[in-house]
Amino acid sequence: MSLEFTDYHVRLAAYALLVDGADEVDGQERVLLTWWNGEGHSDPEWSLPGGGVDFEESIRDGLVREVYEETGYDVVPGALLADHFFTARGRTFDGWFRSQRFVFDATITGGELGTTEVGGSTDHAAWVSLAELEGQPRADIVDVALAARREREARR
Rank of each mutant, 00 (worst) to 15 (best):
1 M>V: 14
1 M>A: 12
1 M>N: 13
1 M>S: 12
2 S>T: 14
3 L>Q: 09
4 E>F: 12
6 T>P: 02
9 H>G: 11
10 V>E: 12
14 A>Q: 03
15 Y>C: 00
15 Y>D: 04
16 A>L: 05
17 L>N: 03
17 L>M: 06
17 L>A: 01
18 L>Q: 06
20 D>V: 11
20 D>N: 11
21 G>D: 10
22 A>L: 09
23 D>C: 07
23 D>H: 11
24 E>H: 12
25 V>P: 10
25 V>E: 05
27 G>H: 14
28 Q>V: 13
30 R>T: 00
31 V>S: 08
32 L>P: 12
32 L>G: 12
33 L>Q: 06
33 L>F: 11
35 W>P: 07
37 N>V: 05
37 N>H: 03
38 G>M: 09
40 G>F: 04
40 G>K: 11
41 H>C: 12
42 S>W: 05
42 S>A: 04
43 D>K: 10
44 P>Q: 08
44 P>D: 08
45 E>Y: 10
49 P>T: 15
50 G>R: 05
50 G>I: 05
52 G>Q: 15
54 D>M: 13
55 F>E: 09
56 E>L: 03
56 E>W: 12
56 E>P: 01
56 E>M: 05
57 E>F: 06
57 E>V: 03
57 E>R: 02
58 S>G: 15
62 G>R: 10
65 R>Y: 11
65 R>L: 12
66 E>G: 14
68 Y>N: 13
71 T>M: 00
72 G>K: 14
73 Y>G: 09
74 D>S: 00
75 V>G: 02
76 V>D: 06
78 G>M: 01
80 L>V: 15
80 L>F: 14
81 L>S: 06
83 D>C: 10
89 R>D: 07
92 T>R: 05
92 T>L: 12
94 D>P: 02
94 D>Q: 03
95 G>D: 02
96 W>D: 06
96 W>L: 10
97 F>A: 04
98 R>F: 02
99 S>D: 10
99 S>G: 02
99 S>C: 03
101 R>P: 01
101 R>I: 01
103 V>G: 02
104 F>W: 09
104 F>M: 06
105 D>Y: 08
106 A>G: 09
107 T>V: 15
107 T>Q: 14
108 I>N: 04
110 G>A: 14
111 G>I: 07
112 E>N: 03
112 E>F: 07
112 E>A: 13
114 G>P: 15
115 T>G: 01
117 E>D: 06
117 E>H: 03
118 V>P: 06
119 G>K: 00
120 G>P: 09
120 G>I: 15
124 H>T: 04
124 H>A: 04
127 W>S: 01
127 W>P: 05
128 V>K: 05
128 V>H: 04
131 A>E: 06
133 L>D: 07
133 L>R: 10
134 E>F: 03
136 Q>V: 00
137 P>C: 09
137 P>I: 14
138 R>L: 02
139 A>Q: 13
140 D>I: 13
140 D>A: 12
141 I>R: 03
142 V>M: 03
145 A>M: 02
147 A>V: 06
147 A>R: 15
148 A>C: 05
148 A>E: 01
150 R>K: 14
152 R>M: 11
153 E>W: 00
154 A>S: 14
156 R>C: 07
